[in-house]
């Protein structure tokens, strides 16, 4: 693989060891690997040749200024947007996930995710649980764990509570791959402690990719990609 900085690209952080399936001796149970991701909006190139990887138990942190393409990258990884170039490899429990499967299997958290404001928090989670074929009781458990009221309309939640509900949505189907865009936004100190605990739990087996403008307090950071604007 050719080193990318030689081509004079704007960024790309080579701290990640190159993943080469044919060479690696132990096949990871979970893996998210992206190579040469390119996405432009019209002539505005947001992502140019971005690479990164995380395996089970690892956390990949993506930082960069506003507009550097963190959210775009995470949307591409979640299958909510199509990169124009590049390859995304996603393995969960040893199984290769294609685009459609990846979209439904990953846990995704982003400030853009919103919930049905006419429905209560519990009704929202029960709906998504039903759609994912998950036990509906799981919604209530997560609400209790995150200290959220069950019968409050989602439209009447404070911004911190909405962020907790996003966490509940992301963890609902116990995904092994978590994509977190600004996961600590609007959370108070107990909230940050709660979700960090949940993240730590998740990392005993799963992997996570976290995007944030600045480096932040996380249980662990194994790889770091800095996107230049």
């Amino acid at each position: 693989m050719s080193p990318i900085h030689e081509q004079g690209e704007r960024f790309v952080q080579p701290t990640v060891p190159t993943y080469n399936p044919s060479v690696s001796d132990d096949t990871p149970r979970h893996l998210l690997d992206f190579r040469g991701i390119y996405r432009a909006f019209g002539r505005l190139k947001v992502l140019r040749n971005v690479n990164g990887q995380a395996r089970d138990g690892e956390l990949l942190l993506i930082t960069g200024a506003n507009g550097s393409g963190k959210s775009t990258l995470l949307r591409c990884l979640a299958g909510l947007m199509r990169p124009q170039k590049g390859r995304i490899t996603c393995v969960q429990n040893g199984k290769d996930l294609r685009l459609e499967a990846r979209r439904r299997q990953v846990g995704f958290l982003s400030p853009d995710v919103a919930f049905y404001s006419e429905l209560s928090t519990l009704e929202n989670l029960e709906l998504f649980a039903k759609l994912r074929g998950v036990e509906p009781a799981r919604g209530g458990q997560l609400l209790d764990r995150l200290g959220l009221p069950r019968n409050r309309r989602a439209g009447a939640l404070s911004s911190g509570m909405r962020q907790r509900l996003r966490w509940a949505f992301a963890l609902l189907h116990e995904p092994k791959i978590l994509l977190l865009d600004e996961p600590l936004q609007n959370l108070d100190a107990p909230g940050r402690r709660d979700v960090c605990e949940l993240l730590e739990n998740h990392l005993t087996d799963g992997l996570a990719i976290v995007a944030n403008p600045d480096p932040m307090d996380l249980p662990r950071v194994d790889h770091h990609v800095e996107l230049a604007s």
């Binding site: 979209r103 982003s110 995710v113 919103a114 998504f128 759609l131 994912r132």
Partner: peptide, 8 residues
């Protein structure tokens, strides 16, 4: 709400 629906 379209994104959570798409993901689920």
């Amino acid at each position: 709400t379209a994104d959570p629906l798409r993901l689920s």
